[in-house]
Every structure is written in structure tokens, then in C-alpha cells.
């Protein structure tokens, strides 16, 4: 369903390549994890896929269900079924979470030529999903992400993802800043969404999240390329030996 071929990207106006030929195919029902050291291009890959301004694709292609994703605006990508759960969700004062969710759902439905969701159906769906993900009524009524804790923001991202029911879900460092309980709730929310016609791309620095969301494939992204791929055991090996141990000394992370 998601086919990334030889993707090269730079930051707009700069020569330096950040992605230097990434190729990856995600089939429906599969969960892929991308791991990699800091500065390897993980977040750039997420942003390029979601269509954020400021990046330039210099080579390669990305298709979602046969459609050229790179030609689309961010909102068109959302309508096509792509969702990016962000590392740093944005606060929107004056706009209630609930209202925002409904506006997002209806925008996507409208773009697809579908009917708007009724208020009743929306309420029913949001209560149900919010319950699973642990987003309480109070958070739903508050302004989008405003004053939310790190964990609440991440849960809110997963709630948006659940409501928008995308074809392909990209999670960018969703585990960062989460304590173990929050991590578990977020993972439960993601696992509840796993289905034979939905794909996942989970970007993470640590393998911890993968204890809870078990991937089918693990890729190691470093220096703008996927250096090696494997099954779940690769993540465990990385945990044990570090990026340097798996990829060679030149990939070792500098001590913090």
C-alpha cells in the first residue's frame, strides 16, 4: 500500500541531503518499525511523507495505494488516508478538542465526497474511542493540546488517529516523554487499530515501545539510508549492542 522508492530529500535551500535513497514497502496489515540514531533522518522521513513545507524531494517516489503522494498537499494526503502522529503536537488555544476532531473528520469526509458525520454519531464514536485510549471528558472539552501533559498530548494524537481511521499510520517518536503507564495506554490504542487493511510505520529511537507494539519488520535508518532490516529480534539486538555494535563503529552514537 505504501511504497517508498529511492527517496532523496534535502532541507529546502540547503544542499545537504538528509535522506539518501530510502526504499521501503509497507503492505496492508503490516507494522514496520524504523529505528535509528539521532540525526539519522527519521523525523525528516515522517515529515516528507506527510508533506510538511521546508523539505525538497530531489529524487525517488512515494505512492499510497498507487497514488503519487508527493504531488499532494498535506490535507490531501490526510484525505488519501495518511496520518502522522507527531512528536510535538501543537496547542491551539480557543479551539476545543472535540470541535477540532469533528472538523478534521468532516474535512476529510468532504474531500472524499462523503456525507458529514452527524453530531450524535460523532459523540458516540468519540466517547468510545476516547475511553479505550484514556482521554477523559475534561480533555475532550479543553482547547486542543493546551496545557496538556506530554502523555496527554500523545494520547490525544492517538485519539485523532483512531477517529480519522487512516489507511497508513505514521507514529513519530510517540514514546518520547512517556512514562511506562502512558506508553502502555498508547500502545493499547495502537494495537486496537491494527487490522488487515491498515499499515503502520513506527519511528522510534528506543526499542521499548516495540515491547508493546510488536512489529513485523524492523529497519535501521542511519546516515539517510536503511542500513539493515530484519524482524523483531533486530530491535532487541540493537538494544543490546547499540547502533555501533550492529552497524559498525562509524554509526555509534556519541556519548550523551
Amino acid at each position: 500500500m505504501l511504497e517508498i522508492k529511492d527517496l532523496h530529500a534535502t532541507i529546502e535551500g540547503e544542499d545537504k541531503e538528509i535522506l539518501k535513497g530510502v526504499s521501503l514497502t509497507i503492505k496492508p496489515g503490516e507494522v514496520h518499525a524504523i529505528m535509528g540514531p539521532n540525526g539519522s533522518g527519521k523525523s525528516t522521513l515522517a515529515y516528507v511523507l506527510a508533506g510538511r513545507d521546508g523539505y525538497e524531494v530531489t529524487e525517488g517516489s512515494v505512492q499510497l495505494d498507487g497514488e503519487d503522494l508527493l504531488e499532494l498537499e498535506p490535507e490531501e494526503r490526510a484525505a488519501a488516508g495518511l496520518f502522522l502522529a507527531m512528536q510535538y503536537p501543537v496547542e491551539i488555544p480557543g479551539v476545543s478538542n472535540m470541535y477540532f476532531l469533528r472538523q478534521a473528520m468532516n474535512s476529510i469526509r468532504k474531500a472524499r465526497g462523503e456525507e458529514e458525520i452527524s453530531a450524535a454519531a460523532f459523540m458516540k464514536a468519540v466517547k468510545e474511542k476516547a475511553g479505550v485510549i484514556g482521554v477523559g471528558d475534561a480533555l475532550l472539552k479543553r482547547d486542543v493540546n493546551r496545557g496538556f501533559s506530554g502523555g496527554e498530548k500523545k494520547r490525544n494524537e492517538i485519539l485523532q488517529m483512531a477517529m480519522l481511521a487512516p489507511r497508513i499510520c505514521i507514529l513519530d517518536e510517540t514514546d518520547s516523554g512517556l512514562d511506562i503507564d502512558a506508553l502502555r495506554t498508547v500502545a493499547d490504542g495502537v494495537n486496537a487499530m491494527r487490522s488487515p487493511d491498515r499499515g503502520f510505520l513506527i519511528i522510534t529511537h528506543y526499542q521499548r515501545l516495540l515491547d508493546y507494539i510488536v512489529p513485523d519488520h524492523v529497519h535501521v535508518l542511519a546516515k539517510g539510508r536503511i542500513q539493515t532490516s530484519g524482524d523483531r529480534s533486530l530491535a532487541l539486538t540493537l538494544e543490546e549492542k547499540g547502533y555501533g555494535g550492529v552497524l559498525g563503529a562509524e554509526f555509534a552514537e556519541a556519548a550523551a
Binding site: E75, R77, A78, Y88
Partner: peptide, 15 residues
């Protein structure tokens, strides 16, 4: 804020 703008658009809202 371009980041905020991107966030909203990535949720399906037109520009």
C-alpha cells in the same frame, strides 16, 4: 506559525 499550520492541514483541514 508554519508548524501549527502544517499540524492542522495534516489533520485534513484545508489551508
Amino acid at each position: 506559525d508554519p508548524t501549527a499550520l502544517f499540524y492542522l492541514r495534516s489533520r485534513g483541514l484545508d489551508e
